[in-house]
């Protein structure tokens, strides 16, 4: 068979909704796109631990502290599944982590925004995890088997995160004036960056067409973004808060919410490394990795010694 035949069979499988598995033949570009996307997703989970981890020591009650620790720990677990899923495509966790640290691999820009007050924990859960879920629910049906299966597990935990985020904002919205103000301020700061999480407009997105054809993605950036706006615009009514967009309004003709223009200048700036925390986030990850070097070496040296001992015995 020549390469065109392989490609034909591959596309037929995709069209028939058969999952692609690690040992199946796949086009190089499919493999590369999946490695890029899954590793980027894994890195987002790991870097995403930082803005929330930042508030564990200051959580305002023991219950909130326990929920927050459990949540950040879930994210570490998601990172693990995703690194493992990417490894089935022939890369290694070390390589992926090196690419993160060198700046070659990206992670979600949302985590380059600072978490300034306790209300940010709720806003991140509600808005950031809420936006992530829409993407992830779609990815439960992505064409690459290991990625789809990892996403099924992750989605269950993420929807819990979103609920707890909303619930914690709900408490603030019913609290003192200071708590209400804290809640509104966090929503104001996280709203636009959350909309940016869906990526560039479809007309500007370079990877979209091929990814849709290969069913890596099943909805476009703009479709997902619209779903998100429609969901949040309703939920915010329960909080009695507002979204910081004067153009947001229900459109009776399209039966969806119209919303204002994203500041694409800010979007590209953060992607290029100029967000408020890009430097700090990467520095924190590099520091943890470098300071952990001797620990990983010790663990390996010890395992080697034990292997020799067992052999000798």
């Amino acid at each position: 068979m020549n390469i065109q035949d392989f490609e034909k069979i591959f596309q037929e499988k995709i069209d028939a909704e058969t999952k692609i598995e690690p040992k199946d033949w796949m086009p190089d570009a499919y493999r590369k796109t999946n490695i890029r996307q899954i590793s980027q997703h894994a890195h987002s989970e790991i870097v995403g631990m930082l803005p929330e981890g930042n508030w564990i020591s200051r959580a305002p009650s023991l219950k909130r502290k326990a929920i927050l620790i459990a949540k950040v720990q879930d994210e570490a677990g998601h990172g693990l599944y995703l690194y493992s899923a990417a490894e089935t495509l022939g890369t290694s966790r070390d390589e992926m982590i090196n690419d993160l640290h060198s700046g070659k691999a990206k992670y979600s820009s949302i985590f380059n925004y600072p978490s300034l007050t306790w209300a940010d924990m709720g806003a991140i859960g509600w808005l950031v995890d809420g936006a992530a879920i829409l993407n992830q629910v779609m990815l439960c049906r992505t064409s690459y088997g290991p990625y789809a299966r990892a996403m099924v597990r992750i989605c269950k935990e993420e929807s819990f995160h979103q609920r707890q985020g909303f619930e914690s904002l709900l408490v603030l919205s019913k609290g003192t004036d200071e708590q209400k103000a804290m809640c509104q301020d966090a929503i104001n700061r996280w709203w636009w960056p959350s909309l940016m999480m869906f990526g560039p407009r479809d007309s500007e997105s370079t990877n979209s067409d091929q990814s849709m054809k290969w069913k890596i993605k099943r909805k476009t950036n703009d479709e997902l973004r619209q779903n998100f706006v429609d969901m949040i615009a309703e939920q915010i009514k329960v909080l009695g808060m507002t979204l910081p967009d004067p153009d947001l309004k229900w459109n009776v003709l399209t039966k969806q919410y119209d919303f204002g223009e994203i500041d694409w200048n800010e979007f590209w700036n953060v992607v290029k490394g100029n967000g408020p925390c890009n430097k700090q986030r990467l520095a924190a990850r590099r520091k943890a990795h470098e300071e952990g070097q001797w620990v990983r070496e010790a663990a390996m040296a010890f395992a080697e010694k034990r292997k020799l001992k067992t052999k000798a015995a």
Binding site: A66, I69, V72, Q73, A288, E291, R296
Partner: peptide, 22 residues
């Protein structure tokens, strides 16, 4: 122990020490 969360020497151990914290 929770101070390690997100800063552990390797992901599996980050999870382990955080688990103990919890």
């Amino acid at each position: 122990n929770a101070e390690w969360c997100g800063h552990g020497p390797v992901l599996e151990q980050d999870i382990a020490i955080t688990n103990i914290s919890l």
